[in-house]
Write a protein that binds this DNA or RNA. Sequence first.
RNA 1: CGGGACGUGGCGCAGCUCGGUAGCGCACUUGCCUGGGGGGCAAGGGGUCGCAGGUUCAAAUCCUGUCGUCCCGACCA
Length: 493
Amino acid sequence: MTNTQAQQKQSAGKNTRTAITPTREENFPEWFQNVIKAADLAENSPVRGCMVIKPYGYAIWELIQRALDDKIKDVDVKNAYFPLLIPLSFISREAEHVDGFAKECAVVTHHRLEKGPDGKLVPAPDSELEEPFVIRPTSETIIGDSMSKWIQSYRDLPLKLNQWCNVMRWEMRPRMFLRTTEFLWQEGHNAFATAEEAHEDAMKMLGVYNQVYEEFFAIGGIQGEKTPDERFPGAINTYTIEAMMQDGKSLQACTSHDLGQNFAKSCDIKFQGEDGQQHHAHTTSWGFSTRSVGGLIMSHSDDDGLILPPKLAPYHVAIIPIVKDDGSAVFEHCRQLAARLKAQGIRVHLDLSDSRSSDKMWSAIKLGIPLRVEIGQREMDEGKLSYVRRDLGKDSKAIVTGDEFCGTVQKVLDQMQADMLAKSTKFTRDHIFDMKSLAEVREFFKADKVGFARIDTSLFGADYDVLKKELSLSSRCLPFEDEGRKVLVGKSY
RNA sequence: CGGGACGUGGCGCAGCUCGGUAGCGCACUUGCCUGGGGGGCAAGGGGUCGCAGGUUCAAAUCCUGUCGUCCCGACCA
């Protein structure tokens, strides 16, 4: 927070005070940082560009992993694990790949430390590695190496592998979740006998990602193909989901690449076909990272902090006893309610701490817990409780019986999940503007308007490149729905 | 990597121009009153001012260097 709470009170007044300052309107990037802090998701670490993902933030990631991992396994991909370190020579195998990655890799050059002249530990000169290793920025090359050994015959195909791991990319400008030096992700690597199968697979995996975004993240992004200048180095095609954040900027939410035979050739992934001849395989790779958590935050949260879609919420319901003096009876009542909800598969956060009730409420709000239940003595006596939906705020407060709540809670959560997706999708669609000329695009972004411009791909050319540079825009994607005739242009993270 | 801003108790900041050994709000502790969208009163605990040098009788304040953070840009498989 930039202001003290006292100042906030003065300037904002009690009724309009927000839990997060600045607001989205005032300063979106800073708001984003403060939502993360207020929800206790992550914090900076002593290592530049790296973050500590705190338990609550990691719990969200675990829910994401579970959802995505299930879907990946549903399409017959198997999980495996490959080394963190990749021989330098592997990275240089694929020419375009080298250009794309080499510069921003962390390199391991020694294998032992010793005390230097001043007593500090230094890499021992005689422990220098003959061939340095890079810390994986992505694993096409080392997985390709294994594939080349595992694949002999067309009967070994398709070979579909996935790994959950960390990678490092020495980015210039790190930002929490969105672009950290080290990040967590899954990377899938599939190999096929034919170009058609590989192409279909790249599309299929993008579809899997889209399902996860819609069903779990409640984010309705735009699926499409990357323009050649935005492609993964070494890919013949890159597919993406571009998600629009509340400030109108785009987040490349995941990618799925059709690598053609480029990596198969450089990694020597060959098989003997039914025709008895040797052929190079056709491969794909597809990745989904902790960046998605940044997208989750920027899509849904408001000026009071995080708002989580129920399916990715570590807690579905926060139960807050409202007590004075001896609250033991209400506490016990709340415990029973919590147990009952848990038995129904609801994830419950029961706040029996001795904080003041108003603090408990704000805490639940900032954590983005979808439903907040409040129970006081009076309600307990009447067998009732009140609850509020986080996305709708205090005006949505409803008072129902405990039985009714338990009977409908799943429906309420499902409704909230659906409403959030509808809202996200509508926001995105409402902020895509068809434009006929580059002049129109220039005017739009010069006026700091929010959203994407959708223009005809016939406008591509030198003028388009100048415009992009001038206003720091980029081609986000060629939406599938426009069948390659249109491109979305916008600012991005 | 270029431009800008910033690093002072857990958090947010003031003090620095005119050097004299640290202050405020929140949080925290204790007590009492309160208790359904951030309550009140009172008494307390906690920091040597990012780090390293330099100038000086004296440095949070001046100088040099360095590390880190944030924003904008470049970059971003």
